[in-house]
Amino acid sequence: MSAAANNIDGLGDGAVIRVRDLVVAFGGKAVLDRLSLDVRRGEILGFVGASGAGKSVLMRTIIGLVPKRAGLIEVDGVDLGAASAGARRRIERRWGILFQQGALFSSLTVRQNVQFPIREYLRVSKRLLDEIALAKLEMVGLAPDVADKYPAQLSGGMTKRVALARALALDPDIVFLDEPTSGLDPIGAGEFDDLIRTLQRTLGLTVFMVTHDLDSLHTVCDRIAVLAEGRVIAAGPIAAMLACEHPWVQSYFHGKRSRVDGARAA
């Protein structure tokens, strides 16, 4: 199946993000080798792969933090490689990013962190700024008294939630999540998954989620794409993953830690 990398299921129309034949290399070593991937509008795409396989690199390449060697990245039909600075800015306005460690600005309070992109991009009154920031915090499940804390005073789960609130500050269409549930306990991770699902439904988001969390993959992801050997070796819903015959996919979804074989008895 890897022979026809361009025809694996999932490539087609209705894609918000279209990646074609993307090559990213550090030094002489190609991390992503002619990778193609589509993210469809309104779906939650889970992106898995071995540690160091280049999942985060793909995400960072799409959002423009890592330069590409070759290939095409289109967001909403706009080729990011050829887009003007203004067009790029407009696209960037439409996505929100949750970094793995949160990447909150440590010198700003939680409220200021959420307000930062709004303040920079929109002209709104101080009152609306405050109301919207608190509304966003409440939507990600945080109490209003968190608003005046500094990031250093937050727990891991709260940091992720604040980072999500900041990623959602400008009401983006696309959200990139880099291991959103890593470092959370299973209950916290489950709640975060539910939160992502709820927000995705209420706000109509398209979610690109790099994850290692098998539970997330089972419960919230509409589709899953597997990265190995620098390209997407399989993409499809969880059922397709379970049926996939690629050895890495097999051991990932059928390994000891997978719920399919391990937890079925319970």
């Binding site: 709004i118 991009y121 929109l122 002209r123 709104v124 009154s125 609306l128 919207i132 400008l170 009401d171």
Partner: peptide, 10 residues
Amino acid sequence: WTAERAGELE
């Protein structure tokens, strides 16, 4: 009724 127009709308 979106973020870009929030100022006018308010």
